[in-house]
């Protein structure tokens, strides 16, 4: 049985540029005006990935806990910024709560996975920790963005209901509970959908990568199961934390809905 990775030489890598030429030909033929972006994208792919290759090689060889921690914090910050930029319904950019939600959920779930489930020697092996945390973050980032956006979207759409409850003496939490539920549901839906179709409709990138890297498919599958479940856990925790941090921001200190929610209001004078 074949095992081990089949290496790609520099010449072979250069050959792959031919694939971009095909894409470029399509662009030229249809006058899509994408040639420049395509060329720039190709250059960036080469430069960025080569650079990260060196970084990872250095981090893996050093394998120091402080360096790994620093990288994880940095990754969380970048992910937090990226996620809040995808929330058109949110009037501000809540980077700080997004960062803390991502950091807490990623560290909690990631630590459980590397320390208890995979438990390499030492447990903070960069080769394991960085890809695992990266996968958690990549998915949590989308989950929390969806749930935060939905929280504001629901509050806008259901202003009458929220305010109606407040008028009866509801606390902000009692008034917004229904919206929070929908928000967390929205954040978790993609990962639940993935759990349903994984292996049937889609072969996840991580598993494919391991198989290409020469791993036994059974091993790759086990890793993939752990990864799917840890993503589900991290997304749930991340959404809950961020929505928990954020719902109060919809209200004034007096516990009334803020004006910015009323923009879509139509009723009354």
């Amino acid at each position: 049985m074949d095992s081990g990775i089949v290496p790609i030489s520099g010449f072979q890598l250069a050959l792959s540029v031919f694939l971009v030429v095909i894409a470029g030909a399509v662009s030229a033929l249809l006058r899509l005006g994408l040639l420049k972006s395509l060329a720039w994208g190709t250059v960036r792919t080469f430069v960025q990935l080569t650079f990260i290759g060196y970084v990872l090689k250095y981090v893996f060889s050093e394998n120091r806990l402080w360096l790994i921690s620093l990288i994880i914090v940095l990754m969380c910050f970048i992910a937090a910024r990226a996620s809040v930029s995808r929330t058109p319904n949110v009037p501000h950019y809540p980077v700080v709560p997004a960062f803390w939600s991502l950091l807490a959920s990623t560290v909690l779930v990631g630590f459980l996975v590397v320390r208890v489930i995979i438990s390499p020697e030492p447990w903070y092996s960069a080769r394991i920790v960085i890809p695992i945390f990266g996968m958690i973050l990549g998915n949590s980032m989308n989950g929390i963005a969806l749930s935060l956006d939905r929280l504001y979207g629901e509050a806008k759409a259901r202003t009458g209901e929220v305010e109606g409850l407040l008028a009866f003496g509801a606390t902000p939490w009692e008034a917004i509970r229904g919206c929070v539920r929908e928000a967390v549901r929205a954040g978790m839906t993609p990962i639940i959908n993935s759990l349903m179709v994984v292996g049937v409709v889609s072969l996840p990138g991580m598993m494919t990568g391991q198989i290409l890297g020469g791993a036994d498919p059974h091993e790759a599958v086990r890793y993939q199961i752990v990864v799917m479940l840890m993503i589900a856990a991290a997304v749930a925790i991340g959404c809950l934390l961020l929505v928990g941090f954020s719902y109060k921001k919809l209200f004034t200190p007096e516990g009334a809905l803020k004006d910015e929610i009323f923009h879509s209001r139509r009723q009354g004078s």
Binding site: G160, E161, E163, G164, L165, L166, A167, F168, G169, A170, T171, E254, G255, A256, Q267, G268
Partner: peptide, 19 residues
């Protein structure tokens, strides 16, 4: 406290919220 106030001074909207 606002919650107590709203409980005592109750606003009934023109179109009441229907749950």
């Amino acid at each position: 406290p606002p919650v107590q106030w709203r409980r005592m001074v109750h606003y009934a909207a023109q179109k009441p919220v229907v749950f």
